[in-house]
Amino acid sequence: MQSTRDYIRGHVRELAGVLRTLEAEGERIDRWGRELVDVVDGGGRLLVAGNGGSAAEAQHLTAELVGRFIGERRPLSAIALHAETSAVTAIANDYGTEEVFARQVEAHGRPGDVLLLLSTSGRSPNLLRAAERARACGVRVWALTSAAASPLGELADDVLGFPGPSTSAVQEGHLMAVHALCIAVEAHLPASSARRRTVDLTAVGTGVEREVPA
């Protein structure tokens, strides 16, 4: 049986390739951030989905965008489809598990929106169905997956893939990409758009609002 120390040494070697890919893909991630700012500033939204650990990382991204990552700014519209537990279970019960994301994409997606799908294999049927439905709805599809060729990579409009060989190494690449994407979004958010308006709690009922600097 492999020892913990041997596993860590081997995993560190795997992550060296992941880090090289992250650095090499900096321009793509920066472009995604710029395009995502254009989407949300135009009234659109980001939809994200994944299964298992990828679901957790996708929801991590929406939390950072709706909340904040580093800089103070207005909240950005981002929805984690797998987090809609009542919708997910109802759709799975009525239409089958392959429809759990696709039906939500059809409900929430508008032309020009972006759907980001996270999958280490790029072969999950529910994510493939979501990508197909998004394309039919005029929603752009981005994929965070592995470096290997996959059906999801073929369906997506743009792909960022990380080398493995382990699933955990790919997932850790996705997490670093999520953080880098948050940096890119905040870097490209216009100063005027970064300012948010909030109700002045000292004047509740008066309709008075104040600007909060970014």
Rank of each mutant, 00 (worst) to 15 (best):
T62F: 02
E14L: 06
S192W: 13
A148V: 07
Q2M: 13
G10N: 15
A92M: 08
E23A: 14
L127H: 09
T62S: 12
G71E: 15
G50T: 02
A130S: 07
I70T: 11
G122N: 06
E23V: 12
A92T: 06
L47K: 01
T89E: 00
A83C: 05
C137E: 13
L36H: 07
I8M: 14
D158T: 05
T89F: 01
E209I: 06
G43T: 10
G96N: 02
E57C: 03
A187Y: 10
L128P: 13
V141G: 01
G43C: 05
R20P: 00
A63M: 08
T4H: 11
E57S: 13
Q2A: 12
H82T: 15
A169M: 05
E154V: 14
Y95A: 15
L117D: 04
A78Y: 05
A90S: 15
E25C: 08
G52V: 10
F101W: 03
S3G: 13
R74L: 10
E132C: 05
I183D: 14
S77W: 03
L160N: 07
A131C: 12
V12P: 00
V18Y: 04
G112N: 12
I183Y: 12
P190S: 07
T97L: 12
F162A: 00
N93S: 05
V204E: 14
G96L: 03
L116R: 06
E25T: 07
R20A: 14
S193T: 06
G173F: 01
A83M: 03
M176N: 00
I79R: 02
P213R: 12
L181Q: 00
Q2W: 07
R73Q: 03
E72T: 09
S168K: 12
R28W: 02
R31S: 10
A131N: 10
A177N: 05
A149E: 14
D41Q: 09
I29P: 03
L47N: 01
E14Q: 15
S192F: 04
L118Q: 08
H108Y: 14
N51F: 04
L61H: 04
T145I: 04
A130D: 14
R103C: 10
E186H: 07
D200P: 08
E27F: 02
A92K: 00
S3W: 11
E57F: 02
V48T: 15
E14P: 11
S86Q: 06
A177T: 10
L128M: 08
R73I: 11
V105C: 03
L115W: 05
I79M: 11
R9K: 12
G17K: 00
V139L: 05
L81D: 10
L36C: 08
L128C: 12
L155M: 09
E132W: 08
W32R: 08
V208T: 15
R9A: 13
L81V: 09
Y95P: 00
E154W: 09
R133P: 00
P125R: 05
S192Y: 02
V40I: 10
A92W: 05
R74T: 10
